[in-house]
Simulated assay, not measured.
Amino acid sequence: MNLYTRHAVTALLAALAVGCGAPPAAPPPRPAPSAPAAAGGHAGAPPPSAAKAPFTLVASGDVLASYPAVLDAAKNDAPDFGRTEGAPTGYDYRPMLKGIKPVIAEADLALCHLGTPLGPLAGPFTGSGALQAPPQVATALKDAGFDSCATASGHTLDRGDAGVRATLEALDTVGMRHTGSARDAAEGSRPALLRARGGAEVAHLSYVLGDRRATARGGRPWAVNPVDEQRIIADARAARRAGADLVVVSVAWGTEYRTEPDPTQLTLARALTAAETDGRPDLDLLLGTGTLAPQAYEKVNGVWVVYGLGDQIAGSMKKQEGTWGTAARFRFTPPERPGERWQVTDAEYVPQLVTRKKPLRSINLGRTKLWVKEHAAIEKTVLSRGAAASGLKAGS
């Protein structure tokens, strides 16, 4: 990072933290989407000669950051809330994630899903119609320890091209990688290539199913990635050729508030996990979001599928399942010979919920004896397709 970039990032980071400063006159240069994540987070940069080591990957569900209750909580948690002169200007999402931060921070690579487009510091921010959340969300996700965020969702294009740009610029500013939407064709043609601590190269891909706007975006097919079975397989193979040891695919799909995967999810999961090249699966992990409720984990054709991670940040939802979620945690071990498949040697789910009463917080149910009924319901859902027999365990 050169001196100019470091100073620009520092200035904008300060503004994003509480929303009370102005962005720098010139934005920092956009990082190349195909470059490995920089040192200083989970993703280290070992020398090419270093042997690749096992690593733990964690992924969590939808971040719905503009719902009214969420906005109110972020405003109340801002450092300048309650000041006597003028209205508070900031939003702070970091306290919401404090309870789950250890799970994310302890991972060697952590993935999130952004279900709400981000806007400029001045807003407006809304949780209905065309969604738009404060850019301080990016600061909180980075602070929690996330390395890359899937951005393809049913709301990606709520604010058009300007919303896509604002979202990706906020993520770029805090050093978060992203995949699923793009500002131009060149960016849209590259996956997020991440280097996990230990040296593994991981490609993160993201798609959305059923968003009419994604299929009617005219001459900008790169704005958001729609689900297309053959396209996903082709992208996974291209990522492998580009050097990825593992390919992780995030898909926003399914039926809202349904705790069982629908037929479309089951069919697509079977097709994607069955794809292989030279006897090796093209996908190593399939992560589902967009269901607004947790769904089953299942090993399909030897590949772990999470049909629905549920929600990571949510407000007052229509059903209580909308405040439930899980963090998926998988330990990947390298093969004995280069070019062969990495193996999952440990598979866990961490049950979570978002409190319905103030203050709004994401709670790790694996580290509390409260919310017993909710914990049991999430466990029943997650294990409903036989994941326990495949080695899935509850984590904390």
Rank of each mutant, 00 (worst) to 15 (best):
T381A: 01
A314L: 03
A269G: 08
S66E: 06
N301G: 08
D62A: 12
N301F: 00
P48K: 11
F330Y: 14
T84H: 08
D211Y: 08
L286Q: 10
V303M: 03
A203G: 04
A269S: 13
E260M: 12
A327T: 14
R159E: 07
D282A: 13
G199P: 07
L109A: 11
P27F: 09
E106H: 12
V70N: 10
S153V: 06
A185F: 04
A223M: 02
Y297A: 11
K318A: 14
G160T: 13
L12N: 15
G188C: 05
K101S: 14
L131N: 06
V306T: 14
A314P: 00
L272P: 09
Y93P: 04
D211L: 08
T326C: 10
D77V: 02
L16W: 08
S153T: 15
A388T: 13
M1W: 13
A166K: 09
T267D: 06
Y91I: 04
T10S: 15
V247D: 00
E229R: 09
E340F: 00
R331K: 14
V303P: 07
T345R: 08
A138T: 13
P135A: 01
A17K: 11
I378A: 10
E276V: 01
S206M: 02
V354H: 07
C149R: 05
R337L: 09
G288C: 03
L111P: 02
Y349N: 01
L205K: 12
V251D: 00
P351Y: 11
A387W: 09
V300N: 01
P191A: 03
A347Q: 10
A11K: 14
F81K: 03
A223S: 10
R190M: 13
F125I: 06
A203R: 00
R337T: 14
T179I: 05
A296T: 13
A38D: 04
L287R: 06
Y91H: 15
V382F: 01
A238T: 04
T139Q: 03
R217Y: 00
A234G: 03
E106I: 05
A234H: 01
D311M: 15
T179D: 02
R367N: 10
G115Y: 07
A43W: 05
A14Y: 12
G21A: 13
G322F: 02
V202W: 04
G288Q: 06
L292D: 03
K52L: 05
P29K: 09
K98P: 01
L118D: 11
A185T: 07
G290L: 02
R258T: 12
V208L: 04
T84R: 10
C20F: 00
L57I: 15
A271P: 02
L392D: 04
V303R: 08
P27T: 07
A74L: 02
P36Q: 04
D172F: 06
